[in-house]
Design a protein around this nucleic acid. Structure first.
Lengths: 193, 193
DNA sequence: CCTCTTTCTTAAGCTACCTTATAGGCTACC
DNA sequence: GGTAGCCTATAAGGTAGCTTAAGAAAGAGG
């Protein structure tokens, strides 16, 4: 069953009753996404919370000069959602693209709202997930304003070594906020030392 | 009563029953903080969620070269908490300093946990606050990797004009991730144009 | 298996931002 | 009411990171 990774993930936060498990299994919809296809494009309203069962995604912005800036990657057991668009029900300014053939589980906003109206458990789980995401976001902000590009790259390597095999250096550069050429010189310098 | 701004703030998210209001009023503790005093210092575990009733704070990191990097300011009706330290119960790497004589309301972690065990309402309120904070954090990450220093300053002016009167340019520079000298040249250039 | 696209690297010249230093204006406090 | 401490501004020289360009290597897809 495809929902198993999601149920395991939830139980890692808070134990679920059997009833809650079947509610989750019923509410989330499985979806296959091919490489280079999008589950969100600029202008769309983000209507789903997306949990990655298999595969790899990136969420990015394209600026007025056409340059891409990556906010987040996601692989197995990660969430990838434009929460600004999702919660405000406004058109997104972001793209979410599959970097590999992928399988996701999606929760519609209406179904999530029902969960939140009724269930203490689901409020606690999503509150915890959001707290964790915020802690990560705060760390990244601090790194962006206080680290050099090389320090940010080293931290990325340490924190997300799994991504190295799966996303290109072009995309890592756009996550770190540098050009691919400069990332290349950083890598060259590191080999030397 | 000092808790009124907090109750108003909560009700702006979700209506509270009278019973819930008195629970809140009882759980939060008022505290006066003098200018240049700290409610959190590096090495301390952050044990309270802090709501600002009056005054002004900044939360910052001091790096190994002694330079300060500001994560957040807070004035009336803002929260200021090192959530990484708060939720993980680990020593903080941050300082939270009063920039003016201030009054805050603080909620101990144990009391918040009790709220979360029992109350759907409080889970929903804090989930919503955390979501909003995450949306803001995401916007700031995008700005940091895709905006120039001048663009970040312009957005800061537009978004937080109240802060201009209350925090120094040195501190704004440390929030934007530039030196005070460079902020000064940006400001000079703007007047000219 | 072959071709087209993407990826990575290297290098030269350039720009944004930093460092250090100096100086004037403002505030606060003895 | 003077002096110390902080805040802002200005300028010169330095460095991190960008732009453009070009070629080699690796993959994707037919």
């Amino acid at each position: 069953m495809t929902t198993k990774p999601l149920l395991d993930y939830f139980e890692h936060v808070l134990p679920l009753t059997e009833a809650e498990k079947s509610i989750v299994a019923a509410a989330f919809q499985e979806r296959k996404v091919k490489r280079r296809h999008f589950i969100l494009q600029k202008g769309d309203v983000c209507k789903h919370h997306t949990f990655v069962v298999a595969g790899c995604f990136r969420m990015y912005l394209v600026d007025e000069k056409g340059k891409e800036h990556t906010l987040q990657f996601a692989i197995e057991n990660w969430w990838i959602t434009d929460i600004a668009s999702f919660y405000a029900a406004e058109p997104s300014s972001l793209y979410i693209e599959a970097l590999e053939h992928s399988t996701v589980l999606q929760l519609k906003k209406e179904d999530q709202s029902k969960f939140f109206d009724d269930s203490l458990t689901f409020n606690r789980i999503f509150r915890t997930l959001t707290e964790n995401a915020l802690v990560n976001a705060h760390r990244r902000i601090l790194q962006n304003i206080s680290f050099t590009a090389e320090e940010r790259y080293l931290d990325f390597l340490k924190r997300y070594p799994q991504f190295l095999q799966r996303v290109s250096n072009v995309q890592i550069a756009s996550y770190l906020g540098v050009t691919p050429e400069f990332l290349s010189t950083i890598r060259k310098k590191m080999v030397g030392s």
